[in-house]
Design a protein around this nucleic acid. Structure first.
Length: 937
RNA sequence: GCCGUGGUGGUGGAAUCGGUAGACACGCAGGACUUAAAAUCCUGUGGCACUUAAAGGCUGUGCGGGUUCAAGUCCCGCCCACGGUACCA
């Protein structure tokens, strides 16, 4: 009987659904395990073979844990708000909800074919009001909280108000927010208007309003995502884009910088992800230092981690956005600076940091060096970002790579200040060497000089120690329709808020007021047009209800919904809380989280941030969301290209293209390929405009395409759909092959060439059970020792590999075992049944069928994972590799308990060894039991 | 630019603690079965030169150095590809 996967998979899919096999309920008698795959954004293109990679891995782990007796939560849902659906709406007028629904249905169909153990009764969609009601609710928690630095946790804003009422905001309290340049007494506070009170509270709330930069495209009349900007132009239309300040919501994530950093030490994530988060947070200990302007009553404060190098300062650079820049520009430099600023405005932050071209402009002003008293020129340059540090840096060209390039370009003096001659391998920025040309620091080691300077600066009161973070507060506003509305309305005093900064500090007259809990959810209204309003506001700004109620017209960003969805799965239908206390306490945190490494800092940092806030406010028991995290690599596509010569109206087979030939390679859909050979007729049908072109074939009469590995994407015509693979080989083969492709965390191109190997494996497994006529071959006799050894070798390896999520080697181990059992002609029921249970997490359908055929009434997925028995694996001897001077020359089988002296005797007696030794003295004999013997001569 | 990851046969990859490089699979070549094909099974397969053959030799994990009895694995310096870079998700 043949292995008929279509029938088998259909049969069990229906059975599992009927019996609710994967439904999970809280059960205090079992240990819990929460296995989670990152939920997808449902794009219109459907799933491609890259998406299920992580899902399959996570599903295998979830199923494995279940076989080990855990109560496993393994849900799935959709991150359903997003730009692509909105963009489609702008182009076609289709409501994003419709587009999203359609995409979700398609995703669900595709996911269902792959045999996941998802509990679909817990599905969440971030765009549904029942879900985003709680996203809005969480936002209100943030809005109504502040970070108490003394208690080192978030607290209700009320506790701050009480402090203000009692003792006001005295000098000491300014440390709680250095941006608030105001002190007041408790009595003052009680007299403040609600507007003034709110303005002060805005400096403390975890969700607050401030001016942040956006990409403004005047021609399109809207704010663009970074993604939509290419080389300072809008991707659609190629219109100019400038950076502009706009009043927006931000989240005070910076208050959590240290805790986000420390928390990394408690979680089992890959070192690389933790390192990326550490670098993103970018904690650095340094010092603030004031430089007084020569002719103006102002001082520039720089942040530096290298206060020891202060005698090497030959210029100071101020960020182009810095508010003091205006005052510093002299009449003579006015023209040059304003031209430079226009150039900087058109550049994105990434472009600015790339500094391939060194740019900058002299302001005309000077500051006075606090120690030498010399005049130091002040420049402005794009490599200084206003958002980092103080937005002013001291230029030390001798000891900083970027400063050096800057000085060289603009002919600024370079003063050597550190003698590194005794550290020949040190780079320019290593904190090593002896101070020179540095007055009282001369002769000190760098580390020592830093300490001395810190003391000195604080003593002179021209600066102070400061811990700085690269992390910035998170921008939380989007001028979009398809996102969560803010549960905020404005108390209008006078004119309404203007979207853009107008230069005045105090140019808004609004006081944000939180909606009450029973007003939630504030649902997205229908709008007449999804097109931007043109003045920078979202389409909601043209909605009547929104205008009448003075609701916030911005919506929340994508990460609002995705920063807490893992909590909603615990209790997805709760209408009185985001999840009940009882269920939150039962599931606590995600035990294994699987998702793409592209989320290393974005989503993963925000989710940790939200978790810590909810923890502080007493809702959660764990302050880290994901205990263990694994990042799967991307599956890339193998694009195909054909060489096209437009003038001569021909295509040339890639092996006939010579260097210097006129023409170019253009993408060609991979569905027209047979290996690398092109089906010319199909291609012509696809692109009828090329039907009359000539096709130059190679000597074999074939037309070959050029292959290249690229991101898998519809626009590159290299997408492989899992449906097609499953139709041809079945879901079990598909799952095995996805895993067999390589280590889960590596990126690799999809190539279905190897898939028949996995298919053959399942058929070979099938043949252990059935002969060609479909007769069951299984016997109930005593299993042979060799078979048992093969089985237990497998079980040991699987147990180890699955814990490590090393699924490619697991699949190889199954193949080896089935090969061995086939050679041994083993049809023993006990051996085969254990094999089937072990394979069940990987290939859920075929194993369910075989398990039933073995006479079992229960599902294989409720069985118990077989433990391996070391007794079957014991070996008495080992084939030692024998090497001479580290080079393998021969092998020798010896008992494993043989000691070095005896081994040496046996080894040296070998003919092969004698041949190499040739009577020379043995310098050394290395012996590692069970590993190797090495003769050194 | 900065941060992170990776580079091993024709291909995907294996080598878990510094100890036999290339497990497993694809592909390819040859053979068996077959009228033929498919399927299945068997044998071989990193490269080089040599040999009737066997055995053996040299070389080989992106490039250049180093540490070690022994390096794909550790250290230093490069090159290339990929992911992120704060409004794609």
């Amino acid at each position: 009987m043949e292995y008929r996967f279509t029938e088998i998979e259909e049969k069990w899919k229906q059975n599992w659904e009927k019996t609710n096999l994967y439904k999970v309920v809280e059960d205090k008698n079992k240990p819990k395990f929460y296995a989670l795959s990152m939920f997808p954004y449902p794009s219109g293109a459907g799933l491609h073979v890259g998406h299920p990679l992580g899902y399959v891995a996570c599903d295998i782990f979830a199923r494995y844990k279940r076989l080990q007796g855990f109560n496993v939560l393994h849900p799935m849902g959709y991150d359903a708000f997003g730009l692509p659906a909105e963009q489609y709406a702008i182009e076609t007028g289709t409501h994003p909800e419709e587009t999203t629904d359609k995409a979700i249905k398609r995703y669900r169909e595709q996911l269902d074919k792959i045999g996941f153990s998802f509990d679909w009764s817990r599905e969440v969609k971030t765009c549904e009001p029942e879900y985003y009601k709680w996203t809005q609710w969480i936002f209100l928690q943030l809005f109504n909280s502040w970070y108490n630095r003394e208690a080192d946790k978030a607290e209700p804003i009320q506790t701050l108000v009480e402090i203000f009422e009692r003792k006001g905001c005295i000098t000491d309290w300014k440390q709680f927010n250095p941006n608030l340049h105001e002190t007041f007494s408790g009595a003052d506070w009680s007299k403040f208007s609600s507007y003034k009170k709110e303005r002060i509270l805005q400096y403390y709330r975890l969700a607050y309003r401030s001016y942040t930069e956006v990409n403004w495209c005047e021609a399109l009349g809207c704010v663009l995502a970074n993604d939509e900007v290419k080389d300072g132009k809008s991707e659609r239309g190629g219109f100019p884009v400038v950076r502009k300040k706009m009043k927006q919501w931000s989240l005070r994530i910076t208050e959590y910088a240290d805790r986000l950093l420390d928390g990394l030490n408690q979680i089992e994530w890959s070192e690389s992800i933790k390192e990326q988060q550490r670098n993103w947070i970018g904690r650095s200990e340094g010092c603030l230092l004031d430089f007084n302007a020569e002719l103006l009553p102002l001082s520039l404060t720089v942040f530096t981690t290298r206060i020891d190098t202060v005698f090497g300062v030959s210029f100071v650079v101020i960020a182009p956005e810095h508010e003091a820049l205006n005052k510093l520009v002299t009449q003579e430099q006015k023209q040059a600076v304003s031209e430079y600023l226009a150039y900087v405005k058109s550049r994105t932050e990434i472009e600015r940091q790339q500094e391939k071209k060194v740019t900058g402009c002299f302001t005309g002003s000077y500051v006075i060096h606090p120690f030498s008293g010399e005049k130091i020129p002040v420049w402005t340059a794009e490599y200084v970002l206003s958002g980092y540090g103080t937005g002013v840096v001291m230029g030390v060209p001798a000891d900083d790579e970027r400063d050096k390039k800057f000085a060289e370009k603009f002919n600024l003096p370079i003063v050597e200040i550190i003698d590194k001659s005794m550290y020949p391998n040190a780079t320019i920025e290593d904190k090593l060497g002896k101070m020179i040309n540095s007055d009282f620091l001369n002769g000190m080691e760098v580390q020592n000089a830093i300490d001395v300077m810190l003391e000195k600066v604080e003593e002179m009161e021209i600066g102070k120690r400061k811990v700085n973070y690269k992390l910035r507060d998170a921008s939380f506003s989007r001028q979009r329709y398809w996102g969560e509305p803010f549960p905020i309305r404005y108390e209008v005093k006078g004119k309404t808020d203007l979207p853009f900064a107008n230069g005045k500090d105090d140019d808004y007259a609004d006081v944000p007021v939180a909606l009450s809990e029973n007003e939630l959810p504030l649902t997205l209204p229908q709008v007449e047009s999804f097109k931007p309003t043109g003045d920078g506001r979202s389409p909601l700004a043209s909605n009547k209800t929104w205008l009448e109620n003075n609701y916030e017209t911005d919506t929340m960003p994508g990460y609002a919904g995705s920063s807490w969805y893992f909590l909603r799965y615990m209790d997805p239908h709760n209408s009185t809380a985001f999840a009940s206390k009882e269920k939150l306490d039962y599931w606590q945190q995600v035990d294994l989280y699987v998702g793409g490494s592209e989320h290393a800092v974005g989503h993963l940092l925000y989710a940790r941030f939200f978790t810590k806030i909810l923890f502080d406010l007493g809702f959660l028991k764990a302050d880290e969301p994901f205990k263990r995290m694994v990042n799967q690599g991307m599956i890339q596509g193998k694009s195909a290209f054909v060489f096209q010569n437009l003038e001569q109206k021909k295509f040339v087979s890639t092996n006939m293209v010579k260097e210097g030939d006129e023409g170019r390679f253009i993408h060609c859909d991979i569905q027209f390929l047979n290996d690398d050979k092109l089906d010319i007729e199909a291609f012509k049908k696809w692109r009828s405009e090329f039907a009359s072109f000539q096709f130059v074939l190679d000597s074999k009469g074939e037309f070959l395409v050029q292959r290249e590995v690229e991101k898998m994407s519809k626009s590159k015509y290299n997408v492989v759909n899992p449906d097609d693979v499953i139709a041809k080989y079945g879901a079990d083969t598909f799952r095995l092959f996805e895993m067999f492709l390589g280590p889960i965390e590596l990126s690799k191109p999809w190539d279905d060439k190897g898939i028949s190997g996995c298919y053959n494996f399942l058929r070979k497994l099938w043949r252990l059970f059935f002969d060609a006529d479909g007769k069951l071959l299984v016997t109930e006799d005593e299993a042979g020792n060799d078979s048992l050894k093969s089985l237990h070798k497998l079980l040991k390896k699987i147990t180890y590999d699955v814990e490590q999520l090393s699924f490619n080697t697991s699949v190889a181990a199954f193949m080896i075992c089935v090969n061995e059992l086939t050679d041994l002609k083993c049809h023993n029921k006990n051996v085969l049944q254990n094999l089937v249970i072990a394979l069940a997490p990987f290939a859920p359908f075929i194993t369910e069928e075989l398990y039933e055929k073995l006479g079992n009434k229960e599902s294989v997925h409720t069985a118990i994972f077989p433990a391996y028995n070391e007794n079957y694996l014991r070996e008495n001897s080992f084939v030692y590799p024998i090497s001479i001077n580290g080079k393998l020359r021969t092998t020798l089988e010896l008992p494993l308990d043989m000691e070095q002296a005896q081994v040496q005797e046996k080894v040296l007696a070998l003919e092969q060894v004698q041949k190499w030794v040739e009577g020379k003295p043995i310098k050394k004999f290395i012996f590692v039991k069970g590993k190797i013997a090495n003769v050194v001569i």
